[in-house]
C-alpha cells in the first residue's frame, strides 16, 4: 500500500509525534485521577496524626524499620533478577531488610521425603 506522508521532515515528525504522545498520556493521567475521584469503593483518606503525612508509617515504625548498614548484593550463583524478584515480593508483604541468602531446596531426595517436607511446611 503506497502512502502519501503529510511531511517528510524528521524534526517536524518528531515534534508532532512527541506532542501527541505527551497529550494522550497526560490525558490518561487525568482519566486515572477522575476514575479515582469517582471510585465509590475507595476508603476515605485518613487524616494525618501528630504531623505524620497520610500514607507514611508512624515515626516509631520508621525508626525500627531503618535498616543497618548492609552488605553488597552477591552477583554470582542464583540469577540476580530472581533475587530481585524475591526481595521485592518479600518487601511487598511488609518485611524490611535485605535478602542475604537464598537456598534451593534439594529435590534429589525421594518423593516420600519431599512430600513429608511439604506437609510439614503446610502445618507451620
Amino acid at each position: 500500500m503506497e502512502h502519501s506522508p503529510v511531511t517528510t521532515n524528521p524534526l517536524i515528525i518528531m515534534v508532532i509525534n512527541m506532542t501527541v504522545v505527551f497529550i494522550v498520556l497526560v490525558s490518561l493521567i487525568y482519566l486515572i485521577k477522575l476514575i479515582h475521584f469517582l471510585d465509590p469503593t475507595k476508603e476515605p483518606e485518613q487524616k494525618p496524626e501528630d504531623g505524620v503525612a497520610p500514607g507514611e508509617p508512624p515515626l516509631a515504625v520508621v525508626k525500627s524499620a531503618a535498616p543497618p548498614p548492609e552488605p553488597e548484593p552477591v552477583d554470582e550463583g542464583i540469577n540476580p533478577e530472581v533475587i530481585a524478584a524475591i526481595s521485592a515480593a518479600i518487601s511487598a508483604y511488609g518485611f524490611s531488610g535485605q535478602v542475604k541468602a537464598v537456598r534451593i531446596v534439594n529435590h534429589e531426595s525421594t518423593p516420600w521425603s519431599a512430600s513429608a517436607k511439604f506437609n510439614n511446611l503446610k502445618r507451620k
Binding site: 524528521p10 524534526l11 515528525i13 518528531m14 509525534n17 512527541m18 504522545v21 505527551f22 498520556l25 497526560v26 490518561l28 493521567i29 486515572i32 485521577k33
Partner: peptide, 19 residues
C-alpha cells in the same frame, strides 16, 4: 499516574532513530 510521563519521554529514542 504521573509515571505515564516517563513512558512518553522514553519514546524520544524512536524519533532519534527515525531521523
Amino acid at each position: 499516574p504521573s509515571t505515564l510521563l516517563l513512558g512518553a519521554a522514553a519514546q524520544i529514542g524512536v524519533f532519534v532513530a527515525l531521523g
